Simulated assay, not measured.
Amino acid sequence: MRWEELDQQPCSLARTLAVVGDRWTLLVLRDCFLGIRRFDEFEKRLGITRHVLADRLKKLVDHGVLIRVPYQQRPLREEYRLTERGLDLHGVILALVSWGDRHMADERGAPVRHVHKGCGQVMRPLISCSECGEQVSARDIRVEPGEGWGDRVEEVLPQVR
């Protein structure tokens, strides 16, 4: 499978990685969730080249994850804001951060805390079943082919025959 062909795969993960699956894009998204909106702020915080940053922002806009909103008319200047599609990535980013907090933090612990506004407590993300509400992990889930797999199910789900 070639990187440029990920969006053609009958796999939601591969299609998602085609949009957000590189380090710079994930860091841009992290900064979006931290309230960064302007090109020069991204550039300064990330230490990324203008060309790479422009490419990643364009891709996120093209895929409806971000929208450009003018904040100044003369000269025209725009900032980047998360769309509903972009906001839906929060759980993904939070899950990656949580994994990093658990497996990559040094002896001082997690670099940031995520506090639930509703109860005021430091929280960690949990995955639960949408039907019964029970917390689930990898061992609790069976993967089956869905309507979108088509004829190539063995390529993605080798145990299904």
Rank of each mutant, 00 (worst) to 15 (best):
L13S: 03
A14W: 01
A14G: 03
A14L: 05
R15C: 01
R15D: 00
R15N: 02
R15P: 00
R15E: 00
T16D: 01
T16A: 10
T16I: 06
T16W: 04
L17V: 11
L17E: 09
A18C: 01
A18G: 00
V19Q: 08
V19G: 06
V20H: 02
V20R: 06
V20A: 04
V20M: 03
V20S: 09
G21V: 05
G21D: 00
G21M: 08
G21K: 10
G21P: 00
G21T: 06
G21Y: 00
G21A: 06
D22F: 07
D22G: 04
D22Y: 05
D22E: 14
R23D: 12
R23G: 01
R23A: 03
R23I: 01
R23T: 01
W24P: 05
W24N: 13
T25C: 13
T25Q: 08
T25Y: 13
L26G: 11
L26T: 12
L26N: 12
L27T: 10
L27F: 15
L27K: 11
V28K: 06
V28H: 02
L29P: 09
L29F: 07
L29D: 09
R30N: 07
R30L: 09
D31Y: 10
D31V: 08
C32K: 01
C32R: 00
C32T: 15
F33V: 03
F33M: 05
F33A: 11
F33R: 04
F33N: 11
L34Q: 04
G35E: 04
G35C: 15
G35Q: 08
G35S: 12
G35H: 08
G35L: 08
I36H: 04
I36E: 14
R37I: 01
R37V: 03
R37M: 05
R38M: 08
R38W: 07
R38Q: 13
R38A: 14
F39R: 13
F39A: 02
D40G: 08
D40E: 14
D40C: 09
D40M: 10
E41V: 08
E41N: 15
E41C: 15
E41R: 15
E41W: 05
E41P: 00
F42E: 12
F42I: 14
F42N: 07
F42H: 09
F42L: 06
F42P: 01
E43T: 07
E43Q: 14
E43M: 15
E43H: 13
K44Q: 15
K44F: 13
